[in-house]
């Protein structure tokens, strides 16, 4: 358990964030006749959870189930007891989501406007939006770029902007879907440091196994099932050996 981590993105004044636990009960998911997850039952309470597995093993779908972006074909996903099927919006306020491709989640032309987007949707008053956007931009080293066009940022900066746009909404848990796959080594380490410094609970889906050092728990997906579940020391070498 990690409490009271130095929050890189947090407001600093806020009290410790409440925890967000996720429970999956016999979850199966299929896209048409292609089943990608079969009978997954898990309870996620740890602060740092990693998810690894081959392409097509069901990782991304699993990640999307955690905040209701995908609702299961069968079974139930509960976030703090809230059913993602019926209370998706409440769930999404608790669980933020960072996508692999930052280009797909930056929706406004300039940096500060984009960070403000989620807060505008939540109906936060303008003054508070300005304050929180400023805080987050400073925290991620983007304050010098606030009115820059987003498409002129580097790949690493775009991913930081995408993360800033999620964290400004103050979720309690953040799901990262391969946040470093499109980045070079330097930016991968930068994003890793950001993830590491988060006060929030995280779930990180990744192929970069070194990101998972120090994590509390790692799930290994194989053919739509959880093939291994344990500490990084238990699961990562097992996964590496299985990959041949």
């Amino acid at each position: 358990m990690r409490w009271g981590r130095p929050g890189a993105g947090a407001a600093g004044t806020a009290p410790p964030l409440p925890r967000t636990d996720v429970e999956l009960r016999e979850v199966t998911h299929a896209y048409g006749d292609r089943t990608v997850l079969t009978g997954v039952s898990l309870t996620l309470t740890e602060s740092r959870i990693g998810v690894i597995g081959a392409n097509g093993s069901g990782k991304s779908t699993f990640a999307r189930l955690l905040n209701g972006l995908v609702v299961p074909t069968a079974g139930t996903v509960l976030v703090d007891g809230l059913d993602t099927r019926t209370q998706a919006r409440e769930v999404r306020r608790r669980v933020g989501f960072v996508f692999q491709d930052p280009d797909a989640q930056i929706v406004h032309p300039t940096v500060a406007e984009d960070v403000a987007f989620g807060l505008t949707n939540q109906g936060v008053p303008a003054g508070e939006i300005a304050r929180r956007v400023d805080e987050v931009l400073v925290a991620y080293g983007l304050d010098g770029h606030r009115d820059h066009p987003a498409h002129l940022l580097s790949g690493g900066q775009k991913q930081l902007l995408a993360i800033a746009g999620v964290l400004v909404m103050a979720p309690q848990r953040v799901v990262f879907d391969e946040p470093t796959t499109l980045l070079d080594l330097r930016n991968t380490r930068r994003v890793a440091r950001v993830v590491d410094g988060l006060e929030q609970d995280v779930v990180v889906v990744t192929h970069h196994l070194e990101l998972l050092a120090g994590f509390d728990r790692v799930l290994v997906f194989e053919d739509g099932r959880v093939a291994a579940d344990g500490t990084p020391a238990e699961t990562v070498p097992w996964y590496v050996a299985r990959c041949g």
């Binding site: 972006l69 999404r92 306020r93 933020g96 996508f99 929706v107 949707n121 939540q122 999620v166 909404m169």
Partner: peptide
């Protein structure tokens, strides 16, 4: 999906 995740709906 990103619009949903960021509360556009």
């Amino acid at each position: 999906e990103a619009l949903d995740a960021r509360g556009a709906d």
